[in-house]
Amino acid sequence: MEFLNAIVALTNFVLIPATAYGAQLALGALGVTLIYGILRFSNFAHGDTMAFGTMSVVLATWGLQAMGVSLGPLPTALLALPVGILATIGLVLLTDRVVYRFYRAQKAKPVILVIVSIGVMFVLNGVVRFIIGPDDQNFADGGRFLLGAREFRNLTGLDEGLAIRTTQGITLVVAVIAVVLLFWFLNRTRTGKSMRAYSDNEDLALLSGINPERVVMVTWMIVAALAVVAGTLYGLDKSFKPFTYFQLLLPIFASAIVGGLGSPIGAIAGGFVIAYSEVMITYAWKKVLTYVLPETLAPDGLVQLLSTDYKFAVSFMILLIVLLFRPTGLFRGKSV
C-alpha cells in the first residue's frame, strides 16, 4: 500500500505535470528548430510569437463566450484556435515580408538575423501589451478535471489522490495530433520533402528546382501554427501573461539545443528531458520518500534539491552539459 501511495503521489505531482509541460515545450521547440533548419537562425522572437498567437486565441475565446458558444466540458479556446492560427500566420508572413526577407536576399550572417529577431521581439512585446495589457488573463473554461483527487481515492481506497486536469489531457491529445500531422507533412508530402531537402542542402535543393521563397513561406506558416498551439496549451494549463511567454524562450531553446537544433524528433525529446528534469529537481520529495522509506529514515526537511525559482537554472545546466559533452545535441542536429 505504502509503495502504491508513493507511486500515485509521484504520478500526481511529478509525472503528469511534467508530461503536460514537456508537451508544451516540445511544441515550442519544434517551432524554433524548424526556423533554425530552414532559415538558419535562432529566432528570439519565438516566445513573443507564442504570446501574440495566444492573445488572439484569448480574444477570440472571449468573443465566442460572449456569443454563448461553448464546447461543454472542453475549453472554448479549442474552437478559437483556428482564428489565432490564422492571425499569427498573417503576422509572421508580414514580418517575413517586411523584415526578414531583406536580410535573406543579402545572405546576411546568422547573428545579424538573430539581432533582427530581437528587434521583432521588442515590437511584438509592445504589440501584445498594447492590445491586451501586461496582466494575467484567465481564459480556461469547461470542466476542471478529467479525474478528481477524491474520486480517485474513493475508487481505489488509497490515501493519495490522483487528479488529471482537463487541460493536461487536452495538452497531450492536441500535442500528439499536432506532432503526427507535422511528421506526416514532412515525410509524406511533396512540400514537406522539399523543406527537408532545403534544410539538408540549400544549393542542391535550389538546383533541383525547389522554390526557396515557397519553402520559407510554408515553414513560417507551420511555425506559426505550432507556436499558437503551444502557447494556447500553456496558457490553458497555467495562465496567459505576456512576460511569462518571453521567459519561456529559455527552456524552449534549451529543449531545441539539447535535442539537436534542426532535428524535429530531437526537439520533442529535448522538451521532455527539460520538463522532467525541471519538475523533478524542483519537486519536494518529502511525501514520496516518507511512503517509501522505513519510518526511522523518514526525512525531516522538504528534500527539495533546488527551490522552484531556480527552474531556469535546471534547464540551463542540462543545456550546458549537453553543449560541453555532445555539442550537436542528443539527435545530432546541425553541426556546430
Binding site: V114, A254, F312, L320, V336
Partner: peptide, 28 residues
C-alpha cells in the same frame, strides 16, 4: 571558460540563461 568557443547563437542562449540564474540567485 565554459561557454566561449560555442558558436554565436549558443553563446547567446548560454549568456541569456546565466543572467536569469544570477537574478534568481539575487532574489532567493
Amino acid at each position: 571558460k565554459t561557454a566561449l568557443g560555442l558558436r554565436s547563437d549558443y553563446l547567446a542562449i548560454a549568456t541569456l540563461g546565466i543572467a536569469e540564474i544570477i537574478i534568481a540567485m539575487l532574489k532567493n
